[in-house]
Simulated scan of single mutants.
Amino acid sequence: MSARTGRVPVAGLLGATLLTVLVVVSVAAPLLSTHGPLDQDLGAVLRPPSAEHWFGTDELGRDVFSRVLHGGRVGLGVTAIAAVVAALIGLVLGLAGALFGGWVDTVAGRLADVQLAIPTIVLALVILSFVGNSLGPLIVVLVSGSWVLTFRVIRGHAQSVVHRPFIEAARLSGAGRRDIAVRHLLPSVLPLFTVAFTLNASAILLLESSLGFLGLGVQPPTPDWGSMVAAGQARLDTAAWVALFPGAALVLAIVGFQLTGDALAERFAAGPRVSALEKEPIS
């Protein structure tokens, strides 16, 4: 086993562990929090980390530890929803483009090109300025800026598979497009889909936090890692903990996604799995 091959499972395990820990503590935030995330104590403003306030307090006397935990519920929750929706859109459009070709593939490809031509931040400014910074429009922005990666990965691989002899054999045996997609194309693209989903989730979390940092994401007083970092950046010299801990949580989550995605990519480096028909040609 090469050194490179030996390192990948360790990196993947580390990434999965980071994500698992962050998800668990975020879900269990109401149980683990020592204070309410919105509770203000003007007599304890900008207190450094202590036995009472493990991560210190912010400019309103709110407990940073509790806000980091609850901020994970918001950030990771929004990321999960947007990543699933974007992945499903990319999967369906990618498979449809490869199977049907023609105008279906052309329209899907042009939509992807248009999306890539519009910076996501500009799209966010336009959408959120018209409809407000609520959760629904935020998820729409995140999905709009992230489905293209999955679409291009799935479409490219599916187009290379759809003309292989085992697919032609399935067509000749009477299989329709739906059967071909479900029984043959879907198993073939699942490894690539998994890798794309993991890496895309990292990009979505970073985008969600960036929008929060710019004031375009989840609105105060709801805790969000990006907005918490923005609120603490002006006090880095006197109260660095206000921005340090939410920033560290964000970095750990992104590193977790990236390590997991890289490990999955290495795991499937030999090529996506193929369907049973590809392994055993139809007689």
Rank of each mutant, 00 (worst) to 15 (best):
R152A: 13
L60K: 04
I89D: 04
T57H: 15
F197Y: 15
L14S: 05
A230S: 14
A253F: 09
F100M: 15
Q219D: 03
T79Y: 04
E266P: 02
V229T: 14
R171M: 08
T150W: 11
F65T: 00
A87C: 11
G43A: 13
I127M: 05
G43V: 15
F245C: 15
F55G: 07
S134P: 00
A175Q: 12
G97M: 10
G132N: 15
Q219P: 06
H53D: 11
L19K: 04
T198G: 08
I121S: 01
A11Y: 06
A44N: 09
P187R: 12
A265F: 11
V92Y: 06
V68I: 03
H35V: 03
V229I: 13
A44L: 11
N200S: 12
I154F: 07
L38F: 05
F166P: 05
L111A: 09
R152V: 12
V218G: 05
P49G: 10
G72C: 11
L211V: 12
N200E: 15
G36F: 04
G217C: 03
I118K: 04
G72I: 02
V229W: 06
L236S: 08
T34F: 03
L46W: 09
A96F: 07
P220Y: 01
S210T: 14
L236E: 08
T198Y: 07
T222N: 11
L13D: 09
R110M: 10
R178Y: 05
S129Q: 07
G176T: 14
A175W: 06
S202Y: 00
P187K: 12
I118N: 05
M228K: 00
G72H: 02
F166L: 02
T79M: 13
F100Y: 15
H184C: 09
I282G: 01
P223S: 01
V114R: 10
V251I: 12
L128S: 00
L123N: 02
N200A: 10
V84Q: 03
G176D: 12
R152L: 12
A234M: 06
T5C: 13
L38I: 09
G102P: 04
F257M: 08
A117G: 14
L69G: 03
G15Q: 06
L111I: 13
L214F: 06
V255A: 13
L252A: 10
M1H: 15
L138T: 00
P49R: 05
L277Q: 09
L14H: 00
V189K: 13
P30R: 00
P281A: 01
R73N: 08
V140T: 08
L192C: 04
L244S: 03
T238L: 07
S227D: 02
V153F: 09
R155A: 09
D237L: 04
V24F: 15
S160A: 14
L22W: 14
I89L: 14
S33D: 12
